[in-house]
Design a protein around this nucleic acid. Structure first.
Lengths: 193, 193
DNA sequence: CCGGCATCGATACGATCGTATCGAAACAAG
DNA sequence: CTTGTTTCGATACGATCGTATCGATGCCGG
């Protein structure tokens, strides 16, 4: 058996390049040539890793989703007491250092509306997040008449909307954070009864 | 003075075509040729209406924003009693017949993150909506410690997030509507005190 | 050492894009 | 009718895209 290559590693490296470019130009704006240049490989190498551009984008968005859920899980394990607040805080991607990820996420969400395979991938991520939040809300609630699923959906949508508004420059990150914290506080209040 | 043409009307007709196509393929996916074909004019005619593609897209998104704010205003005038609930209901674009507009809006928002002129246009629309909602919340509130601006921001973000989740198929329109109504009900409750 | 195969990267190809160009057509003014 | 100006739509152009192709390269088993 002749030459052997670690394709998995290269796929990840390429996915990073995709993210960098998608952050700058949107996912429609990334070309195979640019990706190859950014990842410091030849175009042929990219083609051998992914059968098509679509496959490449799909892998990249999955990569981002994975990192996000990992980070949320890590936060949960580290500080179970403030689980809800911290979880939604991470999901909202408001912190400066995750601005790039937020941009990529939004870009792919917008594309997903028009490209079904992408939508499937993203729905999985959202379903996982909704389940997680639902569980956290249910745990925080005693046994009141609250509907944890509905609260989780509201939280997720609110976080997503705030992130979007920050990205467009309609809100500052601080303002969004305040709105989010207020909502979470109100939710805890409601759950306590 | 020889031949004269109503450019304003044609710009609108072309904008409609842009919306139809952007709804199907995303705004990156619309080409001048397709737009011209859809609007039943020649490519040259489109070029004479808009100096560039960017100018065309900008006009189109402005067109959509105009229609949206018009509709919200109409609702307000028609039924001032349930102003808040109806207003946010319209903004969320959850009703089936406005699904296309919602898709276009999301697509442009995603692009705006990467194209500053578009972002400016959209920020204007959002600022107008936020002001409107702030006013409605302030009117609904007596004189409690509530922060109308913050509540308006939460409402707007929640509506936007829910719309996005419906478009991706993560939530049904009904589920989103329920979440939204619950939130508005909670807000009214809070404002009453 | 060598023949064979996996991998390489450069290049070719065809399509599509936004935009520029230009002669023909259409209409008002003289 | 002729002239002058505006609008027309077809076509040309150059760039860029995703993808296919292919000879060179380098490693491994024998």
């Amino acid at each position: 058996m002749p030459k052997q290559v670690d394709y998995e590693d290269r796929r990840r490296r390429i996915a990073e390049a995709v993210c960098l470019l998608a952050d700058e130009l949107g996912p429609e704006g990334v070309s195979m040539r640019d990706v190859a240049a950014r990842a410091q490989v030849s175009v042929g190498a990219v083609q051998r890793c992914f059968r098509s551009k679509e496959e490449m984008l799909l892998f990249a968005v999955g990569h981002v989703g994975e990192r996000l859920t990992e980070r949320v899980s890590a936060r949960l394990a580290a500080d179970p007491a403030h689980a809800l607040g911290h979880a939604i805080d991470e999901i909202a991607l408001l912190r400066e250092e995750h601005r790039a990820e937020a941009r990529i996420w939004l870009a792919f969400v917008a594309q997903a509306v028009v490209r079904e395979p992408l939508a499937r991938t993203l729905r999985n991520s959202y379903a996982a997040l909704e389940d997680l939040l639902t569980r956290l809300v249910a745990e925080a609630a005693g046994n009141g008449p609250a509907d944890p699923r509905a609260e989780a959906r509201a939280l997720l949508a609110l976080a997503d909307g705030l992130t979007t508004h920050v990205l467009m420059g309609h809100l500052t990150a601080q303002a969004a954070e305040d709105v989010l914290n207020t909502h979470v506080a109100g939710l805890r209040e409601r759950l306590r009864t």
